[in-house]
Design a protein around this nucleic acid. Structure first.
Lengths: 144, 144
DNA sequence: CTTTAATTTGTATTTATTACAAACAAGTTT
DNA sequence: AAACTTGTTTGTAATAAATACAAATTAAAG
């Protein structure tokens, strides 16, 4: 399978051994478009790897975060979540449905970095700007 | 004490009974400029209220959040924190020192709301925009 | 001062996460 | 390909943060 090859390559590049558990975690994380919790991942990955231990999920996720393969995400009233997309992006979060989605916007990023280049903050050096857009998905017409 | 009067007034307005525990929690929360965790608050408030129960801290904080007197804050790799300032604002967060500070910026807010008024997101209705500015405080010259 | 309803306490429990040692498997070396 | 070495997984046990709940207590209204 093509996708699996890509995952194996990325794990190799990170200097990690290729194990069925790691491949399955990464595959699942890429497949689930939302940002699953460790528990959700455990449930889902267990379908593929029956004897899987919850500890492995935590270990694997920590290792991936360490190597920069995935990112941690958390809302103000929520448990830790994980995101396979490590490119710079923001999040849309709807408290009603407890749903979170990625949001990419280059124009916005350029506007913001220009802004903070101009407007310095009293001795705080900004290295990353993350937006959390609170709101709701209810208005959505299509399922896209 | 003047500050205590203000707190009592705010609790009254929220329809809450005035208890030493609540007053002390709110005072402490206003005093600690950082965003303390429930545990930090428990330790601090216990100095004033010796027999204090941890449960009371959680109860009180939940009640305050419910009434809009305080806000919850959380970083991606962190435990729940609380913030006595409920006006719209953003956060500066330094992972190295695990330190978080409030950041107010009207010009930024106006720019962002204008931006999202113009640029609609596919069916997502934005109701609040929160920035987390990652970076570091090490450059700071004065202690202000 | 009495009453009533809200609040606090304390214990017990749950949930998310981490620690750790033993068993195991990946991938390298011979 | 077999053996080795090191990294990984497992499972149990422990910890930490937060919650549930019933009994005791207290605020504030009458």
């Amino acid at each position: 399978m093509e996708i699996t090859q890509g995952i194996i390559r990325r794990l190799n590049e990170a200097g990690l051994k290729i194990t069925p558990q790691r491949v399955a975690v990464m595959q699942t994380l890429c497949k689930l478009r939302m940002h699953p919790t460790a528990e959700e991942l455990f449930a889902e990955v267990s379908k593929t790897i029956p004897g899987l231990s919850p500890t492995t999920i935590y270990n694997t996720l920590d290792t991936f975060v360490e190597k920069g393969l995935i990112k941690r995400v958390k809302t103000d009233a929520d448990v830790m979540r994980y995101d396979a997309i490590t490119e710079h992006h923001h999040h849309l979060y709807c408290a009603v449905s407890d749903r979170m989605e990625d949001y990419f916007d280059n124009e916005l990023d350029e506007m913001l970095s220009a802004y903070f280049e101009r407007k310095q903050i009293n001795g705080f050096k900004v290295s990353d700007i993350r937006l959390q857009l609170m709101g709701d998905f209810s208005e959505r017409k299509t399922t896209q």
